[in-house]
Simulated assay, not measured.
Amino acid sequence: MSRGDKSAYTAKQKRQAKHIEESELDQGRSQEDAERIAWATVNKQDGGGLKKKHK
């Protein structure tokens, strides 16, 4: 089960996390570990959820 609210993430970030999760599952990781790794990777790449644009 995922931790936290994922609504702040963009559609692209959600797609990336799903793709990473599927890859981790193919490598034999548990569902929980695969999801954790996927979101940690997205967070590391993008610095977290949707960012507000500054003017």
Rank of each mutant, 00 (worst) to 15 (best):
S23F: 08
L25H: 07
V42P: 00
V42G: 01
H54K: 12
D33K: 10
E22N: 10
E21L: 07
E21K: 15
G4M: 03
I20S: 00
E24F: 06
I37A: 08
G4A: 08
I20D: 01
V42D: 00
V42R: 00
I20E: 05
S23V: 09
E35V: 12
D26L: 15
A38R: 01
S30T: 15
S30L: 04
E35H: 10
A34E: 03
A17I: 07
S30I: 09
T41P: 01
R3G: 11
N43H: 07
V42Q: 00
S30F: 08
D5K: 00
K18V: 09
S30P: 06
Q27T: 12
G28F: 11
A40Y: 07
R3D: 14
H19Y: 09
D33W: 04
A17N: 05
W39G: 06
K18W: 04
G47R: 00
E32L: 09
Q31P: 06
G49D: 12
T41V: 11
K12C: 01
D33V: 05
D26P: 01
A34R: 00
R29V: 05
K14M: 13
T10H: 01
D26K: 15
A40N: 14
A11D: 15
D5A: 05
K14F: 03
A17G: 04
R3W: 07
Q16F: 05
D5L: 05
E24A: 15
S7T: 15
S7R: 06
G47Q: 01
A11Y: 08
I20F: 11
